[in-house]
Computed example of a mutant assay.
Amino acid sequence: MASEDRERWDARHAAVSAAGAPTLPTPPDALRGREHLLPAAGRALDVACGRGAVAVWLAERGFDVDAVDVSDSALALGAALAADRGAGDRVRWWAHDLDDGLPGGCAGPYDVVVCQRFRDPALYPVLARCLAPGGLLVVTVLSVVGDEGGRFRAAPGELPAAFGGLTPLAHTERDGEASLLARRP
């Protein structure tokens, strides 16, 4: 990702913070109503974590979380949220350009891997390899299904095809989003 993209994301996250919109811990979209699928605890990876809502939510449930994002502003907001919620010691924040893959310190294995609102098909095999046996994958991306096309949108069936070596638990494609919950056998 070019430096102008990093600056754009920094500006976007800083503007949300300046507007006073609070960030609260929240489960990943695809997991809402299915929280029972989470392992009891373990290690988690939050890819393109933004302001840390999911990372902190996982930390509050006992996970040790590696949270990765390109935006320093987002990571600072996430670290502040984690500290405010008493989960600061459970999350490691990684400033990293995901166009270069995952940071070297995020090799796994992870009991939960979350990737929400970031799509890079080249990263899909890496995310699958990071999962521990029995690990849960939670992915949500923009989709052409029910929406117009675009370079950041997944084609129909992209997620189940990309993660075919995992056991699917839930898959949806509608209203411009595609989600997959899957478990490593």
Rank of each mutant, 00 (worst) to 15 (best):
A18E: 13
R43Y: 01
D175L: 07
W9M: 01
P185Q: 08
D111S: 09
P39H: 14
T26D: 04
R117V: 11
A107R: 11
E173W: 09
V112D: 01
R43V: 07
D120Q: 15
G78K: 03
L38A: 15
A82P: 01
G164H: 15
A95L: 14
L180E: 02
V113M: 10
V139H: 04
R129G: 05
V126T: 15
Y110R: 08
R51P: 13
V47S: 01
V65Q: 02
G62D: 07
D99V: 06
V114F: 13
A155R: 14
C106K: 05
C130R: 15
G42M: 02
A15R: 14
G20N: 00
V91H: 11
H36N: 03
S143K: 00
P109T: 15
E4L: 06
W9H: 08
C115Y: 06
L123F: 10
G146M: 10
P39R: 09
G62W: 15
R184C: 12
H171V: 13
V144G: 09
L180W: 04
G149Q: 11
L159M: 02
C106L: 03
L81S: 09
G150W: 02
W9L: 01
G78I: 10
L38N: 13
P121M: 06
E4Q: 11
G105V: 10
R153D: 04
E148A: 09
F118I: 07
R174E: 08
G101E: 03
S179Q: 04
A83D: 13
A182V: 05
M1A: 02
D99A: 12
H171I: 01
A182I: 08
W93N: 00
P121S: 11
A107C: 12
R61L: 11
C106D: 03
Q116L: 05
R129F: 05
H96I: 10
R12G: 01
L31T: 13
A11Y: 05
R174S: 14
D111R: 06
L45F: 15
L181D: 04
P39E: 03
T26C: 00
D29G: 00
V141Q: 01
P156H: 09
C130I: 02
L37Q: 11
A2D: 06
F152Y: 14
V16I: 13
D10C: 04
A41P: 06
T172K: 00
Q116K: 08
W9Q: 11
V126F: 12
R183P: 12
A80P: 01
G88E: 01
A154E: 03
E177V: 14
T167A: 11
R6M: 14
P133D: 13
V114Q: 03
G176E: 05
R90G: 10
S179G: 07
E173I: 14
R92I: 14
G105P: 02
R117K: 12
L98F: 06
R85M: 14
R184G: 12
L142I: 07
A55G: 10
V91I: 15
L31G: 06
P160G: 10
S3D: 12
